[in-house]
């Protein structure tokens, strides 16, 4: 069975959900091999095994953290040459795209970004699905040259467990001198909010211009639903909420079971980031807002009255 390389996304050994999603997709295409770059592989192995990794390639060296994507590109390029995989799956993050771009040039392979599905292509290769033009179109595509390199969006599959052998193979990596000149000189970890990850959450509640800068009702409502909090570009540009939480074309794309837009008009840039959500709910003062064209349920009114009332009602029903 052909080998599928999956680049593991992890936080010092804690495997992110996107990785278990990628392993699940990889099993449909062949036999998944997890590629783990950095420290903490021992802690990660159990999860990778539980989600079907037949092999776990591990590359670690003490100074790796000082570089951007160079170590990961070197390891993947090396494995593409030695293991001749049928495909390489990479998380669709800014870092993942940098890695995919460099690998594509180095191996002269076609690359597809932001896939929401990848499946055997019937005959040969694989076929992918992407949402394009701000969610207005769905396209299917194939890689026609080299080894398919595909970046896959979060939430593209429901992780399914399947025991794998998770045989560990150590990979040595030499960072070329040319890449050593680029260094990360400072890294300040972000404080965690305690809420679910925006791109992984089943429910997302976002606030926009209509909050007037007060995100308290948005956060309280989100917490009553166990949801992640998002923000529109207008809210982020106004400095009301950090950019890491921006939903839209230049922020995150989310595709939760439920998306609640509070005080967001629904410009195309925002729709690009949430249009594929299963159920959409909006609260907005302006009944002409384009967001109401997308909703399953909408309330025209003041979010500062409606959200607290809804939060209280949920708390009451929970008893």
């Amino acid at each position: 069975m052909s080998e599928i390389l999956v680049l593991v996304d992890h936080d010092d050994g804690a495997v992110r959900k996107t990785t278990t999603e990628l392993l699940t997709i990889a099993r449909r295409l062949g036999e998944p091999s997890a590629v783990y770059v950095g420290a903490g592989a021992e802690a990660a192995r159990e999860t990778l095994q539980a989600y079907g990794a037949a092999k776990v390639y591990v590359a670690d060296s003490p100074d790796m953290d000082e570089y951007l994507v160079a170590p990961k590109v070197e390891v993947l390029a090396q494995l593409m040459a030695s293991a001749s995989p049928a495909a390489v799956l990479i998380p669709s993050t800014p870092e993942g795209k940098d890695i995919a771009g460099r690998l594509a040039i180095r191996t002269d392979s076609g690359v597809i970004t932001d896939a929401v599905d990848a499946r055997p292509g019937g005959g040969e290769g694989l076929e992918t699905t992407q949402s394009v033009f701000a969610g207005g179109y769905t396209v299917e595509a194939r890689v026609t040259r080299g080894t398919p390199i595909v970046t896959v969006k979060p939430n593209s599959a429901t992780p399914e467990q399947a025991e794998g052998a998770a045989q560990v193979e150590s990979v040595s990596v030499t960072i070329p001198d040319s890449a050593r000149a680029t260094r990360i000189t400072d890294r300040q970890p972000r404080t965690k909010s305690g809420r679910p990850e925006l791109t992984e959450a089943a429910i997302v509640v976002s606030g926009g211009r209509g909050t007037g800068g007060d995100f308290a009702p948005v956060e309280a409502f989100a917490d009553s639903l166990g949801a992640a909090v998002g923000a529109s570009r207008a809210a982020v540009d106004s400095g009301w909420y950090p950019h890491a939480f921006q939903v839209g074309q230049t922020g995150k794309t989310v595709s939760p079971q439920l998306y609640v837009a509070a005080g967001i008009s629904g410009a195309i840039q925002h729709r690009a980031g949430m249009q594929t959500s299963k159920t959409i709910v909006a609260v907005n003062k302006d009944s002409d807002s384009p967001i109401f064209d997308l909703v399953d349920f909408g309330v025209v009114g003041d979010l500062h009255k409606i959200l607290p009332q809804a939060t209280e009602e949920i708390t009451r029903r929970k008893g």
Binding site: E140, R142, S287, D293, L294
Partner: peptide, 21 residues
């Protein structure tokens, strides 16, 4: 290195219920 094999417009979302508070 890649080819789009098909494309399809996303069907418009069926309009939901909008109420006034």
């Amino acid at each position: 290195g890649t080819a789009v094999t098909s494309y399809q417009a996303r069907p418009p979302r069926s309009s939901g219920t909008v109420i006034s508070d």
